[in-house]
């Protein structure tokens, strides 16, 4: 970790180039961070590093500790134990310097209802010393947001849009987003994802939480999974994909020989009838396609399984933590308690 003094001295220059801290130094570093609430819940021994220019996905079901971790980063709550640094600085002692470089979107977003969208964005811009109205107007136009509408009259999706815009305005070096696309319609979600990718492309850093891996995998480079307050896995999205198998469904017009598949290397979990076969296939697809071309196909589907399943199955393998919950994600545990 770079000394605080050096980091502060270099801040002015670093900011202009969007290269925070010393080269290679993590933008966010948590070491054994523990935070408990009197009412229960919290996080235990969380250790994480997020690097410059990275889009880091933070994945877990509701109540797993995502929001706790994020609120620690912006100094709304303080850790019981462990070390926390952002840009090599202490989020508490150097809070103002740190937060000047962060755009934050809370998970439980509540805006000042009596202001208009424009007044609210301008109010926060004033608190930050920028940006000015022209940039705010350009952003609002890009996201089709009417700045003159009072917040109270906005739909949930449009409120979320306002929250998203206040986070990204002023091009902060680090975006900390707690479930940023909740409530956005798919088109705007797509726009938001594009913007996040552009942010990362310009060397800035994004830390976003979600309970949908399907969302995180679209934008993130790496993913951490948190469960019951503990980080159970950190993995690159590319690594997860490379480890993934394909699910193959074949239907034929002529009777098929199951041996044709079972002798192919990489085939597993084969289930076959006279006119159909269903199996998993690992490795390059070429030998499979060659084999398939000899058949009279009625229907064929080759698809990737959900990363969620891959993620979980991978960590089942070398699992030294508690038994994994199958309830993560879309069909998840949210409403089922």
């Amino acid at each position: 970790m770079s000394p605080v003094g050096t980091a502060l001295a270099g801040q002015r220059e670093a900011r202009a180039r969007f290269t925070p801290g010393a080269p290679g130094a993590p933008v966010i570093a948590l070491r054994n961070v523990t935070k408990h609430y009197r009412s229960g819940g919290g996080i235990d021994d969380v250790t994480l590093e997020v690097h410059p220019g990275e889009v880091f996905g933070f994945l877990g079901p509701n109540g797993a500790g995502k929001t706790t971790t994020i609120r620690l980063l912006v100094d709304l709550i303080r850790p019981d134990r462990g070390e926390l640094s952002i840009f090599g600085l202490d989020p508490r002692r150097d809070g103002i310097a740190v937060r000047r470089r962060i755009g934050y979107l809370p998970g439980d977003l509540v805006l000042y209802e009596k202001m208009t969208a424009g007044e609210l964005l301008l109010h926060f811009a004033r608190l930050r010393g920028g940006p000015g109205s022209p940039e705010i107007e350009a952003l609002a136009e890009q996201f089709a947001l009417d700045l003159r509408t009072p917040i109270a009259a906005l739909s949930k999706g449009n409120k979320q849009k306002v929250g998203f815009l206040q986070a990204v305005m002023g091009t902060p070096e680090l975006l900390v987003l707690d479930e940023p696309t909740t409530g956005l319609d798919p088109l705007v979600q797509h726009q938001a994802h594009e913007l996040l990718r552009a942010v990362a492309g310009s060397g800035r850093t994004v830390f976003l939480s979600s309970h949908f891996l399907s969302e995180v995998q679209q934008v993130a480079d790496r993913v951490a999974m948190i469960k019951a307050g503990r980080v159970v896995a950190v993995e690159s999205v590319a690594g997860l994909r490379s480890r993934s198998v394909h699910l193959v469904d074949v239907r034929t017009v002529e009777r098929l020989e199951p041996e044709a598949f079972s002798r192919l290397p990489g085939v597993g979990a084969l289930q076959a009838t006279d006119f159909s076969a269903h199996f998993e296939f690992a490795g390059p697809l070429d030998p499979l396609v060659r084999e398939l071309s000899r058949l009279a196909l009625a229907d064929l589907s080759i698809r990737e399984p959900d990363l969620e399943d891959v993620f979980l199955s991978y960590y089942d393998g070398h699992d030294d933590t508690a038994a994994p919950s199958p309830a993560l994600g879309r069909a998840g545990s949210d409403g089922e308690r």
Partner: peptide, 14 residues
């Protein structure tokens, strides 16, 4: 109580 404090204090203000 209204949960607006998060957005306010995440700004670079003490």
């Amino acid at each position: 109580e209204r949960h607006t404090i998060d957005l306010l204090l995440a700004n670079p203000v003490s």
